[in-house]
Design a binder for these strands. Structure first.
Lengths: 125, 125
DNA sequence: CGCGTTTTTACAAAGTTTTTACAACTCCAC
DNA sequence: GTGGAGTTGTAAAAACTTTGTAAAAACGCG
């Protein structure tokens, strides 16, 4: 479970309760079933999973998966995230979090959820 | 049934419900009948069968069977795959899978549809 | 040469990616 | 709380890429 890295700190594999990722064979399984991902879908998910738990900015995703500079205006990232979420089924929004105004984050299944401090509540209480 | 390998990990023979492959004699049988394959057809099928269950990229096939570099633009691989499928008859698409954008995969007849997480990190060139 | 084999050509079909257009949502100022 | 600018979600269409196929041309060896 978790991440397995080689001597150059490259992620070799990832696994949690529902998803497993083999970066060598480019094989992803969801609840034991093999996921069929297109190339871009795989590249995108792989990049997110390699930074599991960390926010990956849109700019970084667009640069690394598409080679786009931040100047380029495109919605293809959003569309690909949507298709990944569709294929992730019930766990979609749990696994792929939207960080408004910044980017996306892949959350390992058992990692503590991130909640924004609710200031209004604290003040009114 | 399955694959038989020698001490240098070369596949000597392959067999499943319908196909048998003798790599020494270069004899292939389909449901007990000997298949007549041309040289290139045999080379291509042999390479796929030797990696049964694994995806073999187009580039690898073109390099190993034809000696072509990835730069060369040719459709001969597709044409040969077609002829092989024709000779494989009813099992054609079951045995020779197209992996879009990557290559082809020979699937043993009884291979499970889905794979559990892979522990062994066998890398194929 | 003649014949089987291989490769190319040209187009069709299938699959993938990007764009477009608009809806829904988030944040912040007022 | 409301409104508006900016951001993300979504469905569908358009654009693009890859693979399938039939037929013709080129190859090569007896």
């Amino acid at each position: 479970m978790g991440q397995l890295r080689d001597d150059t700190n490259q992620t070799l594999a990832y696994g949690d309760e529902h998803i497993s990722f083999d970066f060598n064979q480019q094989v992803v399984t969801l609840d034991g079933r093999r996921m069929t991902l297109t190339r871009k879908e795989y590249d995108l998910l792989a990049l997110l999973v390699q930074h599991a738990g960390q926010i990956v900015p849109r700019d970084a995703l667009l640069l690394q998966v598409w080679g786009y500079s931040p100047a380029i205006r495109t919605r293809t990232l959003d569309v690909h995230v949507r298709r990944l979420r569709k294929k992730l089924g019930a766990y979609a929004d749990r696994y792929i979090e939207t960080i408004f105004g910044i980017g996306y984050r892949f959350q390992p299944f058992h990692a503590p959820r991130y909640f924004r401090p609710i200031e209004t509540l604290a003040i009114s209480a």
